[in-house]
Design a protein around this nucleic acid. Sequence first.
DNA 1: TGATAAGATAACTATATAGTTACTTACTTG
DNA 2: CAAGTAAGTAACTATATAGTTATCTTATCA
Lengths: 204, 204
Amino acid sequence: MKRSEITKQKILAAAEKAFAEKGLYGARVDDIAEQSGANKRMIYAYFGSKEKLYVAVLERVYSRIAESEKELLNKETDCVEAIRRIIRHSFDFLYEDPSFVKMVMWENLNQGQFLKESEAPQAKGISVELLRKVLRQGIEQGIFRESVDIEELIVSINMFCFSYFSNIYTMGQIMQTEFSGRAELDKRCEHITDIILQYIVKEQ
Amino acid sequence: MKRSEITKQKILAAAEKAFAEKGLYGARVDDIAEQSGANKRMIYAYFGSKEKLYVAVLERVYSRIAESEKELLNKETDCVEAIRRIIRHSFDFLYEDPSFVKMVMWENLNQGQFLKESEAPQAKGISVELLRKVLRQGIEQGIFRESVDIEELIVSINMFCFSYFSNIYTMGQIMQTEFSGRAELDKRCEHITDIILQYIVKEQ
DNA sequence: TGATAAGATAACTATATAGTTACTTACTTG
DNA sequence: CAAGTAAGTAACTATATAGTTATCTTATCA
C-alpha cells in the first residue's frame, strides 16, 4: 500500500473515533492529527476541511453496514427464520460497531445534512430490501397475516434494533438498570423478535 | 416577577434553543446572550458556566415531561385503553416538544453524564410507573398474557415512541420517505399500538 | 428623597482552534 | 544516480470563544 494511503487510513481511523465520540463540533482537528500520528497539514491535503473529513468518516462508517449485510443474502430459509436472522444480524452488528450507532445519532441531530452531502448513494438498505422481500413472500405463502403494513413494520424492526443501542443511557436511567451486557442484549433481541413474530405470524 | 427572574427565563429559553440545536459544544455563549437579549455577564452571574447552564436546560426540559405525564394519572379506564392512552400521550408530547427529543439524544451521546450531574432526582418516569401498574393489573385480571416480561415491554414501548422522533432523518433516508407530517404520525402511533396490544392481549 | 444594593452593560483577556505557509525528507524512475 | 515529484513537518496566523473586570443604571425602602 502506498504511503499516502496508509496515512489517509490512519487519519480516517482517528477521525472516526473523535467524531463518533464528540461529533463534528466537539472533535478537534489537532487531536485527530495527534492521535493519527499524521501531521495536521495532511488532513487538509487529503480531505480539504474538517467538514469534508467528517463526511468521509460518515461514508466509511455506512459502507461497513452495507458490507456486513451482504452475508444475509446467501442463505435460503423459511420466512420466519429469515426474520429472526435479520433481527439477530442487526443486533450483532450494532453491538460490534458502536461508532456506527453514534455517527447515525449525530447525523440525526444534524438533520441528516451531511448524509445528504455525501456522494455514497444508497449503500443503505440491503436488510430493508430483504425484509420487504421476505415479508411479501410470507404473506403470499399464507404464513404472515395479509393485513400487515410492510413499510410500517420495517420501520418498527429497524427502530427496535437501533434504539436499544442509541438510547442505552437515558433508558438505563429511566428503568434504573444497566443495559450494557451481553446477557441483556440477548434477552432484548429475543423479546423483540417475539413481539414482531407474534404480530405478523397467523394463528399460532 | 422580579427582573432577575425574567432575565433567567429569557436566558434559559435561548439556551434551550441553542443547545437543542447544536449541543453543548456547538452552541455559543455569545449567541445565547444575543438571542436572549440579556448580557453575557448575566449568564455567568446566574448559571456559573456554560456547562452549568446546559444542565439547567436539561432539568427544565425534563421537568416538562414530568409535568405533562401527570395528566395521565387522572382518568380511570380498563387496562387496554390505558395502554392506548399512554402511547398516544407519549407520541403527542414528543411531537409537540422537539427540544426534549433533541436534548435526550445529546445526553445519550454524552453518555448520560450531565443527567447524572443534575440535581433533579427522578422527575423521570411517571409513565413508566403507570405502565408497570397497568400491565400488572392486566395480567391479574386475565386480560394480558402471564408470560409478558413487564420490564422488557416497557422498554419496547418507550423506544417505539421515542425513536420515531429521534431517528426521523436517517429513517427517512433508509425508507426513502418523509416522516414529518401529522398523518404519518397518527398512522405510526396506531401501528405500534397494534403491535404492542397484539403481543400482550390474550386470545383475540 | 436619596443611600444602597441588586441588576445590567460594554469592553477586555487569555486561550484554543481551523486552516496556511515555507520548508525538508523520502521515493520513484528516466 | 540525478532530479523531479510526492509525502511530511513545524511554526505561524487570523479569528472565535469562554470567561472577567470595571463601570453604569435602576429599583427599593429608611
